[in-house]
Design a protein around this nucleic acid. Structure first.
Lengths: 163, 163
DNA sequence: ACCAATGCTTGCATCATGCAATAGTTGTAT
DNA sequence: ATACAACTATTGCATGATGCAAGCATTGGT
């Protein structure tokens, strides 16, 4: 089934590495292609900014930068493009006039929602090929993997993880 | 455990989307951080080129471009940098002198091997937190997922998938 | 009123990317 | 033999992403 690369490290059952690599390809592929479904409206970094804004609501630019693991200046320029495209808006915090808050516009919210919907449809399409019991097994196993990875690869990590 | 986003599409059990998203983060995170372990020696696009060369052996530049889903000109310039860095070398096919073949140097092979080794250690570290039975369950489930995704997200796809 | 800390932006350099135009090669047809 | 069509790789050009360093504005404390 998989091109066994006879490269299994210590403590890993044979074939595990290959399966993990293939699974990474599948999951990352779904995430990336969901952007293509938007008609090339936004790039991956741009979408990441929109997604974090959808998650956090209106936040200071710097906080978005920390959440994304990017330099503040990079977020400034990403925001430039998203404001120009009408997907986000800049605002000010009355308390601290030096702070620039970023918010999604209706257009931005639509993009994030559309990508999420596409991802779910695609996922359902793939899972539908499995028996119900297997579907449950996949979900349960992924939950195990995620819990094992713990905080190391969570949204809030020492070094934030993309996607 | 997961921030249930009450966003489960049709045909998906509740929570599935969140688990999948978290799993994507974990797997993509491992793949991306394996590059950091190389000391920022190469960027992700550069490493993708090296990895494809490791997979395919010496290949024409254009074939590498197709395998990566990139424009040939992009591969030309990626190759420029990797040749300059000493990780790859250009060659010619005696049959077709217009064809430029790309090969890994010893240095390039080392990089690919080091990243793979890091990934395996990290994976083993995470899996070690699970009971052996659960480890097996995770591997089996990922295999199911990959087989369900089938050719749609394989190395050889209509639209090649990164990573 | 000065000053240090904080936060955003701009200047600069580098990498990544695709499209279009160009150049070199090969095989075929005239 | 020459001309042409097909293919491959590269270069020119424009845009986006990125980090670091410098600059500017704001805020709070002394």
């Amino acid at each position: 089934m998989f091109p066994t690369s006879d490269e299994d490290g210590p403590g890993l059952a044979p074939g595990t590495s290959d399966v993990l690599q293939a699974a990474t390809r599948v999951l990352a592929g779904i995430a990336l292609r969901s952007l293509d479904s938007l008609g090339a409206a936004v790039t991956l970094p741009q979408f990441r900014l929109l997604a974090i804004l959808a998650d956090l609501g209106p936040v200071p630019s710097g906080q978005a930068a920390r959440a994304l693991g990017l330099d503040p200046s990079t977020v400034t320029r990403l925001a430039d493009r998203m404001v120009a495209a009408g997907h986000a808006a800049r605002g000010t915090d009355p308390r601290h006039r030096g702070v620039v808050t970023l918010t999604l516009t209706a257009s931005g919210r639509e993009l994030v929602a559309a990508a999420g919907a596409w991802r779910q449809r695609e996922l359902a399409r793939i899972m539908a090929r499995l028996a119900p019991a297997d579907q449950e097994a996949v979900t349960a196993a992924l939950g195990l993997l995620v819990s094992a990875a713990g905080d190391d690869y969570g949204i809030i990590a020492h070094r934030p993880v993309p996607l």
